[in-house]
C-alpha cells in the first residue's frame, strides 16, 4: 500500500497544540445569526462569557465579544444578559461584508 497522505499529526497519538497544528471544528460556519452587543448597555458582568457553551467570548477589558470563528449563534448570551445588551442579528444582514 502506498500512502500519499501528508501527515497532519507530528506524534503517534492525535496531539495538537496552539503553536503548531490545532485541529478544530469550524463551528462559526454553522451560525445563522450572531450576537451584536450594545456596549452602552453592558456593565461587564461576565454572565454572557460564563454561559457561552463553546467558551468563545473575547474579554475586551470593559465588555465581552463573541469570537465569530467559533460562535454558533446559539443566542444563550443574549438570553442570559440581564440588561438585554445583546441582539441576535440574522447573518443575512452581514452578507455584504464578505
Amino acid at each position: 500500500m502506498v500512502v500519499k497522505h501528508k501527515a497532519i499529526f507530528k506524534t503517534e497519538s492525535p496531539w495538537s497544540n496552539g503553536k503548531g497544528v490545532l485541529l478544530k471544528l469550524d463551528t462559526g460556519s454553522w451560525r445563522t445569526e450572531r450576537p451584536v452587543l450594545d456596549v452602552s448597555k453592558c456593565n461587564y458582568c461576565g454572565l454572557c462569557a460564563l454561559y457561552c457553551p463553546p467558551q468563545c467570548m473575547f474579554d475586551r477589558g470593559d465588555h465581552f465579544e463573541a469570537n465569530l470563528a467559533f460562535c454558533k449563534g446559539c443566542g444563550i448570551c443574549a438570553k442570559e444578559c440581564p440588561r438585554g445588551a445583546y441582539k441576535m442579528v440574522p447573518e443575512g444582514e452581514f452578507a455584504n461584508e464578505g
Partner: peptide, 19 residues
C-alpha cells in the same frame, strides 16, 4: 495549549485511525 484527541476532522481522523 496542547491537547489530545482534539477534533480530528476528515483527514485528521483518518490519519489517527490509520496510525
Amino acid at each position: 495549549s496542547t491537547g489530545c484527541g482534539t477534533h480530528g476532522m476528515e483527514m485528521g481522523y483518518v490519519e489517527a485511525r490509520y496510525k
